[in-house]
Amino acid sequence: MKILAISGSARANSTNTAMLRAVAQTASPGHDVTVFSAIADLPVFSPDSEAGPLPESVQVFADRVGESDGVLISSPEYVRAIPGGLKNAIDWLVSREEIVQKPIALMHASHRGDDMLSQLRLVLATVSQRFSQDLFLRFELMKLSPDEIARVLELPSNRAAVSDFLQAFSEFCRR
Rank of each mutant, 00 (worst) to 15 (best):
M1C: 15
K2C: 03
I3W: 05
L4T: 09
S7D: 07
G8I: 02
S9T: 04
S9I: 01
A12K: 13
N13E: 12
S14T: 01
T15S: 14
A18F: 11
L20I: 04
L20M: 04
A24D: 02
T26L: 12
T26G: 06
A27H: 00
S28V: 10
G30W: 08
H31G: 02
H31V: 02
V33A: 08
V33S: 06
A38H: 13
A40T: 11
P43M: 06
V44R: 12
V44S: 12
F45G: 03
F45P: 11
S46K: 07
P53D: 13
F61E: 01
A62K: 10
A62Q: 09
D63I: 05
E67Q: 15
E67R: 13
G70M: 00
V71P: 01
L72A: 02
S75M: 06
V79R: 12
R80T: 11
P83F: 06
G85K: 09
G85H: 08
I90V: 15
D91A: 12
E97Q: 14
K102F: 03
P103K: 02
L106I: 03
M107Y: 04
A109I: 01
H111V: 11
G113T: 05
D114L: 13
M116A: 14
L117V: 08
L117S: 07
S118V: 07
S118N: 09
S118D: 10
Q119C: 10
Q119V: 08
L120N: 04
R121Y: 03
A125G: 13
S128G: 07
D134R: 00
L135N: 00
F139P: 00
M142L: 13
K143Y: 12
L144K: 15
P146S: 05
D147Q: 13
I149H: 09
A150F: 10
L153F: 06
E154L: 11
S157T: 13
N158K: 00
A160H: 09
A161I: 01
V162E: 00
V162R: 02
V162W: 02
S163D: 15
S163H: 13
D164C: 05
D164M: 09
Q167L: 12
Q167I: 09
A168G: 12
C173Q: 13
R174E: 05
R174T: 11
R174G: 02
R175N: 10
